[in-house]
Write a protein that binds this DNA or RNA. Sequence first.
DNA 1: AGACATGTTGCTCA
DNA 2: ATGAGCAACATGTC
Length: 286
Amino acid sequence: MPELAEAEFFRKRWHQAALRSPTILRVHTNDAKKLFRTAPAAAIRASLTQSVYSTSAASAKQILFRFLSPATTNAPAIDAWLGVHLGMTGELSVLEPTHTPRKHDHLILYTAAHALVFSDPRMFGRIQFHLGHTAPKWWTQIAPALLSAAFDAKIVAAFLRRRARSPIKAVLLMQERFPGIGNWMADEILWRAAIHPAQPAGTLRPTEVKKLWRECRAVARLALNTIAGRGDELPSDLNIAIPDNWLFNHRWEKGGDCPKTKKPLARAEIGGRTTCWSPARQKIHA
DNA sequence: AGACATGTTGCTCA
DNA sequence: ATGAGCAACATGTC
């Protein structure tokens, strides 16, 4: 499920529970080696047991939780960094402290008040782990956020020039330049910008590039505010607050209509992913 | 039964 | 070397 705003939603959900009951009493992991491919589960259990939650952040589709791992006879206290990528079907939930691990619960942090559960049926996600005084490299190397000053119109234009022959839809999915954009956000952005998803990236007019850049930021901001909530507020469920005038609420409906033009939506595979657009407002040009 | 799913990665070929 | 396209991953749901 997760794109940038969903990642922030799940981060906040664990964060709010972990703030209230920050000591990790026990850690459960299952034997899904695929999810722990870069971080041995045994090391995670050893370092996080008796650790204390401190802070967290979400960036693009990644989430980073920071804990203070206690001193041992051999080693002083040190920061433990737990990274989560939710893949296609991952989620983070907060359940009762008596929760029994289910089939697809891959990592559970038990505190006095909660079970912090990471589950992922399809296992396209990833758990990462790092001990040290600074954040791990995979985190600091994430491309500049859509809402940062570094993500400017010029850098977008230059990127589109390099990917000139690819459909713009495929280009928007490239995390190296558009961190956190996934299938539905890409379609939402193109729909708002009135750009056809199959339009080759190198053929966008300068005004279209500018519009695209602006809508990347607008959709990121709106998605974060509605899906993950503003400030301390956290919606009770994912996606419940998404307004009906977004493409999002119509893209999966059979026979769905464009909220702007009221005309039928189209669907096809573009850039390797099912793509939804409004033919009445998104047209290919030379 | 078969199609399809809010993601990445590693491989081919040009 | 760089870019483009696609199969593969694993499981659930319609």
